[in-house]
Design a protein around this nucleic acid. Sequence first.
RNA 1: GGGCUCGUAGCUCAGUUGGUUAGAGCGCCACGUUGACAUCGUGGAGGUCACAGGUUCGAAUCCUGUCGGGCCCACCA
Length: 875
Amino acid sequence: MKQELDKAYNPSLSEDKIYQIWEQSGYFNPDNLDLPKNAKSYTIVLPPPNITDKLHMGHAATVAIEDLLIRYHRLRGDRTLWLPGTDHAAIATQNVVEKKLLRGQGKSRQDLGRAKFLEEVWVFLKETQSTILMQVRKLGASLDWSRLSFTLDEERQLAVRTMFSEMYKEGVIYRGERIVNWCPRCHSTLADDEVEYKEQSAKLYAFKYDKNFPITISTTRPETKLGDVAVAINPKNERYQKYLGQEFTVDFCGQALKIKIIADRNVDSNFGTGALGVTPAHSLVDWQMAQANNLPVIKVINEDGKIKNGFGKYSGQTALVARLEIVKELEAKGLLEKEEEITNNLSVCYRCGTPIEPLPSRQWFISVDQKLKKLGNKSLKEKAIAVAESGEIEFIPERFNKRYLDWMNNLHDWCISRQIWFGHQIPVWYKGEETFVGLEAPQGDAWVQDPDTLDTWFSSGMWTFSTLGWPLNFKDGKKINDLAKFHPTQVLETGYELITLWISRMIMMSFFALGEIPFEKVYLHGMILDKQGKKMSKSKGNGVDPLDMIDKFGTDATRLSLLMGTTPGNDSRFSEDKVEAKRNFINKLWNISRFILTTTDEKYFATPNNKEPKAKTLADKWILGEMNNLILRTTENLNNFDFSLAADDLSDFTWDKLADWYLEIAKIEKNKEEILIYLLKNLLILWHPFIPFVTENIWQSFNDQLLLIAQWPSAKKKLIAEEAKDLKLIQEIIVAVRNARQENKIEPAQKLEAVIYGQEATKLLNDQKEMILGLRTGLATLAVKEKGEKIDKAIMVAVGGVEIYLQGTIDEAKEKARLLKEQVNLEKLINLQTQKLNNSEFVEKAPPAIVAAEKEKLVNYQTELSKIIKIIKSL
RNA sequence: GGGCUCGUAGCUCAGUUGGUUAGAGCGCCACGUUGACAUCGUGGAGGUCACAGGUUCGAAUCCUGUCGGGCCCACCA
């Protein structure tokens, strides 16, 4: 079935076709893999992309890394499942559709009403969802599409409702009043981490409530002072000590207020006047102070960001207008003492940028501190902390373990209700005073469902097990079917910005539902920045569309550029030049394969990849040794998540060792077909997780089976250093001689081995009168015109491993000089080494392994030196 | 204020628990290239590994401090 490779590799012609072959093979689904019963499972769930976004570089990185892991484990014979899905992204999606509606029809969501609006959302969603899934395919993702999930499909709705009612039953979910972050534009609460901070300059006003009040307070928000119930001072503040505990009735801009003087250590005596007006309804800190001191809560601002009724002329004004009006009134009454410019952080909604109003509101919460019997009387928070501390869940890179723990240790109850329409509607129904929590509405008409929806992270927090069939696959506390086979998953791979939003929630949710961790390892990749190191964003227009890169350079090159030169958890810059360089490499691999396959008879194609062929020459021994070590290192690197290192190493072998040296040798030494095919097959397997398309393409041209399910090669133990070193020297000589032979000025290659052992070295070299080496590929001319530094340099280069220098009439003196130089170098090294080993401190204090290694080095130098001396003597 | 991270060639970055002479890609310069490959080959220039101390027989690597980027958390009344 030999099928010749095209002269030039064109990814755009073949990638889609190959993806189709894979998909049709069914091997993306682990159920179709031919595996022994006891094969290990290896599962990753794809972080579900939001259906609002088209793919960006972050997704491409995610796919590159996860597909790499998945393909590697599939090749290793694991029961490998990569589970796809999409996220409904409640608020984000609603915002996008709202904007579209407003732009298109000039209508708001309220104009349409809930049902109509949701219809619009679903139309939008169907369209973008299929686009996104197509794009994920384009990236070559070997996802099991038969298990495709959506955070809002029927199965996930069942999972979410079950989760909610079980949590409610056990008292983990409760309804309560608390200060929430309220976005007056989105008309919804926001979680703490959905709030962003924007630095701004603000005015800090200092004033008294009325002229009888003894303390001047300072604030940037005078309008909220209409709801003040106390003034807080630092307990150490001597100036106001005498007022502590006193109560005053004041007339603040026409509003009668009861103000108690309280102490709180959070108050900074040096900020403003050192006295803080306590507004429980509109500040979290103040709320806590009010609770601690049993003070009432007076709401001033409503859900629209306007002053509530009951505050005289201010009622109905927006907060900002009211603020200016109050300042004007204070000024008129002579109460305003000071006005200064300060910079502070304004909290704004992460979706729309509108300033947040902290408001007391009745919401649904998940208690993170509620002790649970089924968790050994531990809370979700305690469990989630314990698994990170014990290492049961491992973060890669490790430092994110600390960031996770810092977050978890300060975790408060999680507000899960959102006042938006799109999402999982809260499965709670009310009838008068009655409340029903369950999967479906109870019988009867009078029941009304809670209008709120759940925080989008509630459903994505369940992602590892809701996708595997929970709760149906969880019977009597036992996992069955997919849930038993694939949970806990092995790796959760995502961007580090999701540690708080997503990862912490997944861990808690999994503990509640299953009493176990959701994943064993968390691999966190950095952000993909633009060429200047700036965050890619739609508004800045500096984003790079991965699909553009794919069109231009192919998926493999795009993926490889995201995997190389990057380290976990560190941001990396993306540049087109890098993708181009990888494209060039892929072309090189293509040409290497083309050369091997076109010069090899078809009957050798069946050479197995897992049985090392016999080495006939030293060059063979060398390259097979290199391949053996490459297999060992690649396996180790991938097990350690060192993708960049693995790819560097593979490139070095492919380009420098195989293409530049061994293939050149193979042009002279014959009968290398088995070795070449063996090398090619293993090289393609090792590369496949990184660059799946081109490797499969080449593989298909000379194999009947798919590379997708080939067998990862095994290796013998590492060759000892000395052997490898010898082989490297040999390799140099082989090539030098081979080149000389091409000039028809040297004996045939059969004599190579003799050369290597130095027996006929002199004779061969002496024959090379007037010879210049390195006129062709693989070697270069090294022109040395004079003695001195330049010669030394040239000699160094020669010794350094690339070529042997010979010029004009063979100059024995020069050759001798080269050898002498090497001798001197070696002697110097041996001296240093001997000194080192004679140093008793070193021998005693350095680890034995290092001492042994150093001794080995000394031996190596000595053997090398004796070889050199032998050659010099024979000259 | 607390924490994390980075500073290595002109640029982008590697550097595998401290170990001979610190690497790659791109860029630059020179030379070469008619059958695997110009998407190429060979060579070259280019580094006080931010700085200062310390630990060690030995430091780009570990510790302390300084300077300079980036990020996270808290506070900002």
